[in-house]
Amino acid sequence: MATDADRDVDGIDEDAVSWSDPLPAVLLVGAVLVAGAYATSVLDTAAAHLVAGRRLRLGELVLGPWREAALLAHMRRSTTERPDVQTWALAPALLAGMAAVAVATVPLAPGVAVADVADGIVLFGAAMALVMVGVYLHGWSSNSVFPLVGGYRFVALALSYEMPLALVLIAAALPAESLSVGAIVESQQGLWNVVRQPLGLPLFLVAGMGLASWGPLGMSDGTDLAGGTSAESSGGARLVWALARRFVLVAVAVTGAAVFLGGWHGPVLAGGLWMALKTLVLLAVLVGVGHRVARIRLERFVVVAWAVLIPLALIDVFVSGALVL
């Protein structure tokens, strides 16, 4: 995913583990994604029980996600009439791959980054743009109506997610005078971007929620479409798709923690722990909103995105730019 040539960050201790080597890189990104997906499921179960006012046993909370994963792995994969088998298998891999690229650009602690490249947030934006291809392929492949409609929906909305996402990231890059995620984290020593650019994080989370097709923006896989792009997925295929969507959510939370919540900066605790805590907080916010806010109408969201979110993101860029000058 990244070679040594990609590394462009000053001040890294050359004696430390080289996280851009293939094995450490895969292990690190894999561990972040899997741990994040597990945390997402635990938070989701906890939020669902809290909102529903139901009692929750600790064992159910901790083991529930593993049990559900085991059940899906145990169940058979069914197929549809004349599906596009290759793209059906490829879609979750593409989604997970894009989430991995995004996580790779983020330093998880000082010097612990797989590919903290000079254009890190551009790479993140590019990876998030390709999420659209993964979701659409997933909807297309099963040769069935409701998955395809789910895919259409995502394509119709993707630009409305990506525009504000790109703009708030540019705004965050301005005070750092760099597109590297590491440099953006460095620039937040003393003042986090969430305070310096109060519009940034909320807009980023809305866009990120859309890209992960989660909660009120879970239109591609909604209940009203009998599951949307995953309406025909069963067994292991269903499991990998559910995982891939969570990976995207985790990538959004990790990046949000680094770009807006000061990354590893924080007192007492080690930098990596601060990153983990901040990521968990963002995941909790995303998951909590999913249980509180109704799914938004497609048409209404496009109007809101272009009439409100994008102008706000532009204001964010202009004000941030003016402050830097």
Binding site: A48, L50, A52, G53, G222, T223, H291
Partner: peptide
């Protein structure tokens, strides 16, 4: 999309 609120 509000299964938990519905359950309550």
């Amino acid at each position: 999309g509000l299964d938990a609120r519905g359950r309550r």
